[in-house]
């Protein structure tokens, strides 16, 4: 068990390391560097050389990687290309906002997905299931910006219930985002809920068809007790991993949702920095997002291991 945990931790660490190398190498391969971006048209001759010397860009690549990576571990990402802001504080506020958006959506979306998924699974191919499953397909296939646009149109413009755009600044206290945060939350919740409930549904159906459920049915155990004692605990286990995968996937989707609603989160900062070619900021965001991704997946694996004794041996690694 402990060896297994250490192994997973080490693999996670290795993945983060590889990601950092990919990020660094990727930016390295792009034409131009921080100095050509900073000096723009004047980036030539002596000025360019001076700038490169000042920022240490004349060092070999591996030395600069070590410099960047050791700074990043201590939470120091340097300053942005314009040299005006410290990346760590710039990213910090945005990260806090994105985590708030994602966390609140999960708080609503995951329980909702569990309830709806179990209902759909128990009423397989009957009306409740068909309704839920069809709605889920719509919610998960239609692009987030389309869902967002339709929700704004209905709830903000036609019904005038909630504001359709976030006007609060990036470093405002959390409570200031209400009620503006409600619509972005709704889009987030919708997409997340749809993905998770589909897994819950098929997982419930699978367990319902298993031998031990059949045995219990044959013994005459009441249906409610079968569901509570046998189906739910077994069906909900694989869901932990899917929640993790969905969260990870939403790290990308957050970009679109935040841009649509003008929400000052990490995703919008990412698009802005890419558009402005602020590569140091892009690198920092990429590393943070990738670390969250790996962390969430790792946590999910460990939770699954804790909850399921069958997975605690070394050689039953799940694919």
């Amino acid at each position: 068990m402990l060896r297994m945990l250490f192994r997973r931790l080490a693999l996670g660490g290795l993945t983060v390391f590889l990601v950092s190398v990919i990020i660094f190498a990727g930016v390295e391969m792009l034409p131009g560097d921080a100095c050509t971006a900073y000096l723009e048209r004047e980036a030539q001759g002596q000025r360019l050389e001076n700038c490169r010397r000042d920022f240490g860009l004349d060092q070999p690549a591996h030395a600069r990687y070590l410099d960047w990576a050791s700074g990043a571990i201590q939470g120091d990402f340097g300053s942005n290309v314009a040299g005006t802001r410290d990346i760590a504080t710039l990213v910090g506020d945005r990260l806090k906002n994105s985590l708030m958006l994602g966390g609140l959506s999960m708080l609503v979306g995951v329980p909702l997905a569990l309830v709806l998924g179990v209902i759909a699974g128990l009423t397989r191919d009957r009306l409740p299931d068909l309704t839920i499953s069809t709605l889920a397909i719509f919610a998960m296939t239609i692009p987030e910006f389309v869902t967002a646009t339709v929700l704004i149109l209905v709830f903000s413009i036609w019904l005038n219930w909630v504001p359709g755009i976030v006007l609060t600044g990036a470093s405002a206290p959390a409570l200031d985002y209400f009620p503006e945060i409600l619509l972005p939350m709704a889009v987030f919740t919708l997409v997340m809920c749809a993905h998770i409930l589909r897994t819950v549904r098929s997982s419930v159906i699978e367990v319902l068809g298993s031998d031990y459920v059949q045995m219990a049915t044959l013994k005459g155990v009441p249906r409610g007790q079968i569901v509570r004692r046998h189906v739910l605990p077994n069906a909900l286990l694989p869901v932990i991993n899917v929640v993790a995968l969905t969260v990870a996937w939403l790290l990308g989707g957050v970009v679109v949702i935040e841009t649509v609603f003008n929400f000052p989160g990490l995703g919008r900062l990412m698009v802005e920095s890419i558009a402005m070619r602020d590569l140091p900021t892009v690198q920092a965001i990429a590393l943070i997002v990738a670390t969250i991704y790996v962390g969430v997946n790792l946590t999910a694996d460990m939770l699954t291991m804790l909850a399921n004794p069958r997975l605690r041996t070394l050689h039953t690694r799940r694919p």
Partner: peptide, 11 residues
């Protein structure tokens, strides 16, 4: 492959 997948597609 895992490392590549850890970065959001949009980025």
């Amino acid at each position: 492959v895992d490392a590549f997948l850890a970065l959001p597609w949009i980025l």
